[in-house]
Design a protein around this nucleic acid. Structure first.
Length: 156
DNA sequence: TCAGTGACTATAG
DNA sequence: ACTATAGCCACTG
């Protein structure tokens, strides 16, 4: 089952399987979209939560049902750490996140973990930047990363 | 087991 | 500020 969050800057698709969010798909808004947000009909609790996250910065609920099965251990630790430690409007470096996840030297592996993040936006990998304040990479395009950060009043 | 890979980083020109 | 480079680590085939 799929459902959508339509935002002026992006569309987020939640892909559900066995009552768990298997992954999210993120794509930049195509030109000429609406100026307000909307969701697909009968949104799940998680989607409602995401809607209000972008509407009025409501924190994401810690129990969003994500399908963690088969995630390699370090990547899971990194993603969980990111979810818990970096809320709306905050940023973290790859190396900082590596340290918080318990392995200070693993900045590069954190980058790989971000690249493999199955749940962009829910797990806020757009809030992870380089130690030199550079933007770093983004699977869905660095332009979108910049816009997501701008929504949170973060300018690099 | 091991070589290859990459959303990194510190350092040197 | 930019480029090159060597070191770094978890994960993969």
């Amino acid at each position: 089952m799929q459902e959508f969050l339509i935002h002026p800057e992006f569309t987020l698709t939640l892909i559900w399987k066995n009552n768990l969010i298997e992954k999210t798909l993120l794509q930049p808004a195509d030109s000429g979209t609406t100026s307000c947000m909307k969701t697909s009909p009968r949104p799940s609790r998680a989607l409602g939560n995401l809607y209000r996250h972008y509407l009025n910065r409501e924190p994401l609920h810690p129990e969003i049902p994500l399908a963690w099965k088969n995630m390699p251990p370090f990547r899971a630790r990194v993603l969980r750490t990111l979810f818990w430690l970096v809320p709306w409007g905050r940023i973290m470096t790859y190396s900082g996140l590596a340290a918080m996840a318990g392995n200070p030297g693993a900045a590069r592996a954190v980058g790989t973990a971000m690249a493999c993040n199955p749940w962009p936006v829910i797990i806020p990998c757009h809030r992870v930047i380089r130690a030199d304040r550079g933007l770093g990479g983004f699977s869905c395009g660095t332009e979108l990363k910049k816009k997501l950060l701008a929504l949170e009043d973060i300018i690099l």
